[in-house]
Amino acid sequence: MLFGIFGLLLGLGLGLWFPGYFPESISAYVGIMLVACADSIIGGLRARALGDYNESVFFSGFFINALLAAGMTYFGQCIDLELEIAAMVVFATRIFQNLAILRRSLLNLNEK
């Protein structure tokens, strides 16, 4: 957890310090990457809480999900269909589900 917070702060600092901006054309991809990141973080926390964390699953999931989402965004742009919404909905649903599982597991721990 500490590592996560540390990484988050470091990333925020880096991003704020970094000179330059994303051009408007790729902001959709960055947005989907952000949601993929959030999904991976929550998923990692859940796996950690449930004890089935696996490094390769974590990383492969993160990269493949992000790439798939970006690919869908691109494909959607090609056919003038907002496919990134589909990826967003899936990621957001997973975030909610994972958070719910995490919350329950934590509540159970505290009840003990």
Partner: peptide, 12 residues
């Protein structure tokens, strides 16, 4: 992943 998230978030 947290580092990436923070970076992307700040930049975005």
């Amino acid at each position: 992943v947290c580092l990436l998230f923070g970076f992307l978030f700040a930049m975005q």
